[in-house]
């Protein structure tokens, strides 16, 4: 047990060292500054995917994360542009507003299961896009552009985070921000899954009626899980809007929602860190295939099909089978 524990601590430390020290060092040595943007995107997308994974954990297929990411982005952008807020408080506000919206939406639709839930959340993404086009506050198809970079954050006169506009390398700053949030997000997820609530969620995944019959408050649990999931989506969307300094109705579409779901599948639905690995592989795979030009989508989707045939339970199931053999 103690050995297992020290193994875990060592691997977490190694992971932190890699993302916070090794990766920036390697990038500054190689001079590939553009990689910061890629890795920042991976970190943010994996936060949103983590949310989707959590809904998978209660046995629901969520293809609506794009809606919350879009909403989070717009909330942050509108608060910064129209109401003169600083960027930092808009992150939790965007997350909380998304969570609140998801409670309202989730109460009726979480009664649905299986493909019904999947299809409803899919249309939810479309609804969000159409709403962003139709509402006056979102500025229609033109979107909200030239959002300023995040300013300084100081508590009691002590500057914790410097103004991004004054930094020489704002990409590094965004990378550190996104990765920090990703680490926090997955730590929360890990804790949640190991907790009592996590076990109860697993009981929902297996059999809701049975769980309900032994006194689990299933309606409450699934709304909570869905709200946490949407919170992640909103946070990711808010930071994305700040990085690209713009948000459009087409910033997050059905394709993105589907991709969030695919990230979870690819990493493995049974593993908390599945979405992180899945996002990394899918995003980098797509980027690497860019050189193949017109064949990019063909190769990408072909590989995905092959991967699905060989490893239908996700990439992390590979580790499981090798461990069993050993």
């Amino acid at each position: 047990m103690t050995r297992n524990r020290s193994m875990k601590i060592a691997s977490v430390a190694a992971f932190l060292a890699i993302v916070f020290i090794a990766v920036p060092a390697a990038i500054s040595l190689s001079g590939r500054i553009d990689l910061y943007y890629t890795l920042t995107s991976v970190a943010l997308l994996s936060i949103a995917s983590a949310g989707v994974w959590l809904t998978f954990y209660i046995g629901r297929i969520n293809i609506g994360q794009g809606a919350y990411a879009l909403m989070g982005g717009y909330v942050s952008a509108i608060l910064v542009m129209n109401h003169g807020w600083s960027f930092w408080p808009t992150i939790p506000v965007a997350g909380l507003l998304c969570a609140a919206a998801s409670v309202l939406i989730g109460l009726p639709i979480l009664r649905l299961r299986g493909v019904y839930f999947a299809m409803v959340t899919l249309t939810l993404t479309e609804v969000a896009r159409l709403l962003a086009l139709a509402l006056p506050i979102t500025n229609g198809a033109k979107g909200i552009v030239s959002i300023p970079l995040p300013g300084a954050l100081s508590v009691f006169g002590l500057t914790i985070i410097p103004d991004f506009a004054t930094l020489q390398n704002s990409r590094l700053a965004f990378y550190l921000l996104a990765v920090t949030l990703m680490v926090v997000c997955f730590a929360v997820m890990y804790r949640l899954v190991q907790s009592r609530i996590g076990k109860l969620c697993q009981s929902l995944q297996q059999n809701e009626e049975l769980a309900s019959s032994i006194g689990v408050n299933i309606a409450y649990l699934r709304v909570i899980a869905y709200a946490v999931s949407s919170f992640f989506g909103g946070v990711a969307g808010a930071i994305f809007a700040a990085i690209s300094q713009s948000i459009y109705p087409s910033s997050f579409t059905v394709t993105d929602s589907v991709n969030f779901m695919l990230n979870c599948f690819l990493g493995g639905l049974g593993y908390v860190f599945g979405p992180m690995l899945g996002t990394l592989v899918l995003y980098f795979g797509w980027d690497l295939l860019f050189q193949t030009g017109r064949l990019q989508l063909l190769i990408y989707s072909g590989l995905m099909i092959v991967l699905m045939l060989v490893l239908p339970n996700g990439l992390l199931s590979l580790a499981e089978t090798t461990r069993k053999k050993a």
Binding site: I61, F265, G302, M308, P312
Partner: peptide, 18 residues
């Protein structure tokens, strides 16, 4: 081969891309 029947959705989405 899959543990969960939702896995077919990934396959379906991948074939859609294909």
């Amino acid at each position: 081969r899959s543990h969960r029947e939702e896995s077919t959705m990934l396959l379906a989405a991948a074939t859609a891309f294909f």
